[in-house]
């Protein structure tokens, strides 16, 4: 849970604007973006995700660099993605 992982916003449903669909390493899940309220997030933006919440907005270069670093972690990153896959935030 110590990791913060980058994800790309795929969709922000107009009826639930705090709950974005985000893609992280090929996994699509709902992520709460309420902590970045007022930042005008939109599909295509990249965010840093920690335990189901977006913590900060990052640019795409940074996101890809971070993903590469995380993938190099091996197990710790795989466990995080597995945990995310189990997530059913609604």
């Amino acid at each position: 849970m110590c990791l913060a992982i980058p994800g790309e916003i795929i969709e922000i449903p107009p009826d639930r604007p705090a709950l974005a669909t985000v893609e992280v390493s090929g996994v699509r899940r709902a992520v709460n973006i309420g902590l970045l309220e007022g930042e005008g997030l939109a599909a295509g933006d990249w965010i840093l995700i920690h335990v189901g919440f977006a913590l900060s907005r990052i640019d795409e270069d940074e996101a890809r660099a971070t993903l590469r670093l995380l993938e190099g972690l091996g197990d710790a990153f795989d466990d995080e993605i597995d945990a995310l896959r189990e997530s059913r935030i609604g």
């Binding site: 709460n32 335990v51 189901g52 919440f53 945990a83 995310l84 189990e86 997530s87 059913r88 935030i89």
Partner: peptide, 8 residues
């Protein structure tokens, strides 16, 4: 039970 997020 293990969870990914407190929201889970």
């Amino acid at each position: 039970r293990m969870v990914y997020s407190p929201l889970d």
